[in-house]
Each structure stands twice: as C-alpha cells, then as structure tokens.
C-alpha cells in the first residue's frame, strides 16, 4: 500500500494554521492600531524592537520613554529575526508614519537599505554611535558605562566576599559599556569582578546558570544586562543576593534585593530629535544619554536600605562623573 497524502485537505489545514499564526503574530504587536494620541507633537511614531514591550529591559525602556512624552506609538516588538524587523520598519514607512524608531543595533544594515527609499520619513536608530551617513536617520546611544560605574561603586560597598558576578548577553552595544563601567567602578573600590557573557540575549536558563556559577565562585553581589537576566535575578532571589539592574527599573523582579537600576530615559534625546524634525531636519545627528543630561538616572529601590555613607558615595560618584573628575573608562 502506498500512502496517499490528502494534499488538498492538508493545504487547507496549513493555510488555516498559518493564517491563525499570522493573526496571532499581528495581535502580538500590542498597540498596532493606536497611533493617534499625541500631546507634544503631531508626529506619528512607530517602534520596532527585538524583545517584548514589557521586558523590564531594553525594549521597555524605549516604549516607556515614548509614552512618557505623551505619544502613543505603534509597536512591533519581539522581532528577534532581523528580516522581520526590516519588514516592519519598511511597512511603517510605507504607511506614512513620520518617525520610525528601529530600536536595535542589529537593525542598522536593514536601515541602510530602507532609509534612502523614504526620504520624507525620519528613522531613529540605536543603540548606535553614528547615522551611517544617512540624512534621514538620527542615532542614539546611552553612555551606559556611567551608570554602570555608579552601580559598581555601590556594589563594592555591599560585597562581603570582595567578589561580584556579572551576567552579560552578547558582547555588543550598551551591554559592553555597562559591564565595563560597572567593573571599573567596583574595581576602583577594591572589589574583584567576574564577568560572564552568555552570548545570548534570550537564553534565560543559561543566564541563571551563569549567575549560579558566580555564586559558586564566591560572588555575593550580582548584576547583569539585557532581557535574559530575569533568570539571573531568580538565582539572586533564591540565594538572597543583592542585584543591580540596568536599562529599566528592575525592582519589580525582587523588591527586597534589587538595590538600584540605571534607567534609560530616551525621551531626553527624543525630544531634541522631534524638535529638529518639526524644524525640518530629518536626521544626520547622533545623541547620547548621560547622567548629565538626565537621560541616565540611577533609581534606587526604597525597599533596599543603604547606609548613609554608601548613599553619599553614590551621589558623589554621580557628581564626579558629571563634572568630569571621575573617569569611567568608557
């Protein structure tokens, strides 16, 4: 007997399944149909980002910042695949969105192809330190080493063992800046910093094991960056280990153990970009978040009590970075 697949039935089934999948994927772009409410500007805005809108990390920092400006953006999140992101970026431009934020270093190659096709659209791209020579692209990046340095200085006051563990993702962009700044800050206070890059932005289990490995090797304070650190925070919670966050305020992950988070307030530079756009400048400039311009803010968790000396040291460190008397090594 030779098997005879019922190809017509299968085709129908596959079509239904794929259609449903596409519907689900479309629904996943949370606020996809609501690009209207604007307070500060009439510009329509869309965000394309690699992880979930509420990841307590990279993507959420941008979504929160745009919403803080009184703008309700259209969002396509979870674009782990760059081609998917490229399709979304182009789609928003074709739909006539005024400002498309491509929130991911990895989207740069796609943007170099797409941006010239839509000269009337402004593309905002980061984290990136240049606009690739494109006149309708603004670039942005955080000087994450600054907040990392402050977190490192504070972390060094909390460690009893003198060893601090760091869980990083891929060695790229602001992750490297944060981690290098953190190490410089902690080491300036005499602490030893062990760094693990898991080489994945999404492997939560590996991040958890990396944190566990740091504890095995004597670390009693942890930090990390990118969306997979939720696994590492879980290990910190399980072992009662203080945690330092970055990108977004990570206090909700453990209200008793998250000491402080370096929070990105992209709205600081976005406002400047929007003003330029409304004045007719479509791009060509790069903006940085810093402690000085309040784009980087160290948000301490009220639920974690720091002694007065440590708080003072943190404030002095922030002031020193701003006035240039402290170098973060970045």
């Amino acid at each position: 007997m030779k098997p005879k697949p019922n190809s017509r039935t299968f085709t129908r089934l596959l079509a239904v399944l794929l259609a449903f999948t596409f519907v689900v994927a479309a629904c996943g772009s949370d606020d996809a149909d609501s690009g209207d409410a604007t307070v500060d500007t009439d510009l329509t805005v869309a965000i394309v980002a690699p992880s979930a809108s509420e990841d307590l990390a990279f993507t959420q920092s941008m979504v929160d910042s745009v919403k803080a400006m009184g703008i309700t953006p259209q969002i396509t999140d979870g674009t782990f695949i760059v081609d998917d992101a490229a399709a979304a970026i182009r789609g928003y431009a074709e739909d006539g969105i005024n400002v498309v934020i491509a929130h991911g270093t990895q989207f740069g190659g796609s943007l170099a192809e797409i941006a010239p096709d839509f000269p009337d659209t402004t593309f905002i791209w980061g984290t990136a330190t240049d606009t690739q020579g494109l006149d309708n692209v603004f670039a942005y990046y955080p000087e994450a080493d600054q907040g990392g340095y402050v977190n490192g200085v504070v972390a060094a006051q909390l460690t009893q063992s003198g060893t601090i563990g760091v869980v990083g993702p891929v060695q790229a962009g602001d992750a490297v800046a944060y981690i290098d700044g953190f190490a410089a800050g902690a080491e300036s206070q005499g602490a030893t910093v062990n760094i693990t890059y898991t080489d994945s932005f999404s492997d939560v289990a590996l991040a958890a094991e990396a944190a566990q490995a740091h504890l095995t090797n004597g670390a009693d304070v942890l930090t990390g960056t990118a969306q997979m650190v939720v696994g590492a925070v879980g290990v910190a919670s399980e072992n009662d280990i203080p945690w330092f966050g970055t990108q977004a305020n990570q206090t909700p992950l453990d209200e008793g153990l998250v000491v402080a988070s370096q929070v990105y307030h992209w709205e600081v530079v976005l406002k400047e970009m929007f003003a330029l756009i409304e004045d007719g400048t479509k791009g060509g400039q790069t903006f940085a978040l810093t402690l000085e311009n309040d784009g980087l803010v160290i948000e301490f968790n009220d639920g974690y009590e720091l002694d007065g000396d440590t708080t003072k040291l943190a404030e002095d460190t922030i002031a020193g970075i701003i006035d240039g008397s402290i170098s973060t090594g970045g």
Binding site: D55, V204, A205, G234, S237
Partner: peptide
C-alpha cells in the same frame, strides 16, 4: 523549565 527558573518571558525556550 519555567518552574525551575521561576519566570517566563517571550521565547523562553530559546530553541531548546
């Protein structure tokens, strides 16, 4: 997986 980690997020399995 999720109960060992005590958390969930998008694409938790990461191709596992």
């Amino acid at each position: 997986l999720t109960l060992e980690l005590g958390i969930f997020q998008a694409n938790l399995t990461s191709g596992l």
